[in-house]
Simulated assay, not measured.
Amino acid sequence: MSALTRTNILSLYRSFLRVIERWPTDYLRPNRNLKHILHLRVTEGFKQNIAVKDANVLRALVLDAEVELDALRRLAENEFKEKYPLSDRIYRPAANPKYYSGLVAAIDKTAKLKQEADLKPSLWKRLGFWTRKFFWN
């Protein structure tokens, strides 16, 4: 593999990592973090293909990775949300005009409560000291 190709692949890898770093965190589902899954997929994908020596296969892999990177960038930058904006009629349906604003407020409230709960020790951890002290001695 030539130095130029290696440099291009490393640059492509770093571009993936920069886009993934900007990806928002989902506080409602911390166990299903898309940012983490994307990072794992990219690192594993590049590791699996590190031994590829065939120039045609390598070129095809790089082209596929560039297409995926472009799609990921477009999603991260909300390109389609800006390109195809939704009308006010969608956000405020006649049957229940406050539905979506209430839904967003409820999600934000739940996320905030989830973050606060993660900071507090669990009941079992707080009781653990007492159960060990009185029941196991």
Score class of each variant (00 low, 15 high):
Y13Q: 09
A60S: 08
R59N: 13
R89T: 15
V42K: 04
L40H: 10
Y13G: 06
K83N: 09
E21C: 07
N33K: 10
L69F: 01
L63C: 04
K35S: 10
A3S: 12
S11K: 07
L40Q: 15
I107C: 09
R92N: 11
A105R: 03
L58V: 02
S11R: 10
T110S: 13
F129K: 12
D26H: 07
N49C: 00
S2C: 11
P30H: 02
V42L: 01
W130K: 14
F46H: 01
R41E: 11
A3Y: 06
L40I: 09
D88Q: 15
W130R: 13
R14T: 11
S122N: 11
L72T: 00
N96D: 12
N56W: 02
K47G: 11
Y100Q: 01
G102W: 00
F46S: 02
E82A: 14
D26W: 03
L34S: 12
K53L: 09
Q48A: 11
H39I: 04
H36P: 01
T5E: 15
K112S: 10
L103Q: 08
Y99C: 12
A60V: 02
R29Y: 12
Y84H: 11
R14Y: 14
D70R: 06
F129M: 10
L113T: 02
E82F: 12
L123E: 11
G128M: 03
K109R: 07
K125I: 06
A106Q: 05
K53G: 08
G102T: 03
R92K: 14
W124F: 14
F46Y: 05
D26A: 03
K83D: 04
L86T: 10
L34H: 06
K114Q: 13
E68A: 04
R126G: 05
Y100T: 02
N96G: 04
A3I: 10
L58H: 06
L12F: 05
S122F: 07
V57Y: 01
F129N: 13
R74H: 08
E79W: 09
V42T: 03
E44C: 03
K35M: 13
S2V: 10
R73F: 04
L75W: 10
Q48P: 00
D64Q: 04
A65F: 00
Y91M: 14
L86G: 13
P24H: 05
A71H: 00
L123H: 09
W124D: 15
I90A: 13
R89L: 15
L63K: 10
L17R: 06
A106T: 02
H36A: 14
E82D: 14
L10R: 09
L113Q: 06
T7G: 10
L38D: 06
L123T: 12
L17W: 02
R74T: 02
L10H: 05
R22H: 14
K98H: 08
I107G: 03
G128S: 09
W130G: 14
A3C: 05
